[in-house]
Design a binder for these strands. Structure first.
Length: 296
DNA sequence: CTCCAGGTTCCGG
DNA sequence: CCGGAACATGGA
């Protein structure tokens, strides 16, 4: 890869590393001293040095918007609850931003995310892009856009399964077809309030409450959307409901919507990333033994 | 080899 | 409303 001169833009309270590795987006790859990826169909290189974010010349505005450099992080942090677990997560993840992803590629990658580790979600994303996306050249490297609903709508389920996505192929294909046919309109979803938008997304196959909330948070700028996955469920149960009778899924959802405030989605991502990177395997095994032991 | 992963859907209490 | 099971695949 041969990079020319880069453009610089100010980036206070920002961690590119955290932002790209926290499990919200899955196609950026390390290159040189930074990262190479696509913002929509535009190939971009970015690297951070201190409070400066350098990027491909001409892409400054696009990059600043994508990485949400305008989000007032200090104001957002001020709305987080002040309990120790939340403050530890904040300290650990400071500078991490919820980015503005194109709605469809965000939704689609989370449709393929069920029962998969972050590393494998990346693999699936790249396989789908490489096989069905548009090729974009950048400094001698080849990048691939995420295929549109219309493009995926006309491929076979077998061809999709060749990307090693298993049973998720049927869901991704079904959702692409419904959107391509206009049965669900993502541009319209963007105009709805959170609850209506979530309900509309859940009409798509493979989209339940968790995936819908990921799409709302990462692809529709809904900072209140609070996805509850296995990690967040552990955090809620072991920290916020420790020593209590096992809360129902319903109870966890109610708690998450009242306790974490107006930027609960942001809080959720900090708790998720912190737990995933710092909770040792030993704790997971201990938890496992505990939960499988009969109550006394 | 066994276990588990940023779940959803369907089915029987 | 709630708990269980099936669903594919690969990394630990």
């Amino acid at each position: 890869m041969t990079l020319g001169k880069l453009a610089a833009l100010p980036a206070r309270e920002f961690s590119l590393e955290m932002t790209l590795t926290c499990g919200q987006v899955f196609h950026w790859v390390r290159a040189e001293a930074g990262w190479l990826g696509l913002i929509g169909d535009r190939a971009v290189y970015v690297e951070q040095k201190g409070e400066t974010l350098s990027c491909t010349p001409g892409a400054e505005e696009c990059v600043a918007n994508y990485f949400a450099l305008d989000h007032p992080l200090e104001e957002i942090y001020a709305t987080f609850p002040s309990d120790p677990a939340m403050q530890q997560a904040l300290h650990f993840c400071r500078g991490m931003r919820i980015i503005r992803q194109p709605a469809w590629e965000c939704l689609a990658t989370f449709i393929t995310s069920s029962m998969k580790q972050v590393a494998h979600i990346m693999q699936m994303s790249h396989a789908i892009r490489r096989r069905f996306g548009e090729r974009v050249e950048y400094a001698g490297d080849a990048l691939f856009t995420y295929p549109t609903p219309a493009r995926l709508a006309v491929v076979s389920e077998e061809a999709l399964r060749a990307c090693s996505i298993g049973y998720r192929a049927k869901n991704l294909l079904g959702s692409a077809r419904m959107i391509a046919a206009g049965e669900v309109d993502l541009a319209h979803v963007a105009t709805l309030d959170d609850e209506a938008a979530r309900a509309e997304l859940c009409r798509l196959p493979g989209v339940g409450e968790k995936v819908a909330n990921c799409a709302l948070l990462f692809g529709f700028e809904r900072k209140r959307a609070f996805p509850i996955d296995v990690w967040i469920e552990r955090v809620l149960r072991e920290i916020y409901f420790a020593r209590k009778r096992r809360p129902t899924t319903r109870r966890l959802r109610e708690f998450s919507q009242t306790y974490f405030g107006e930027n609960s989605g942001y809080a959720q991502q900090y708790l998720f990333h912190h737990a995933r990177l710092t909770w040792p395997k030993a704790r997971q095994r201990a938890r496992k033994r505990q939960s499988s032991r009969p109550p006394c």
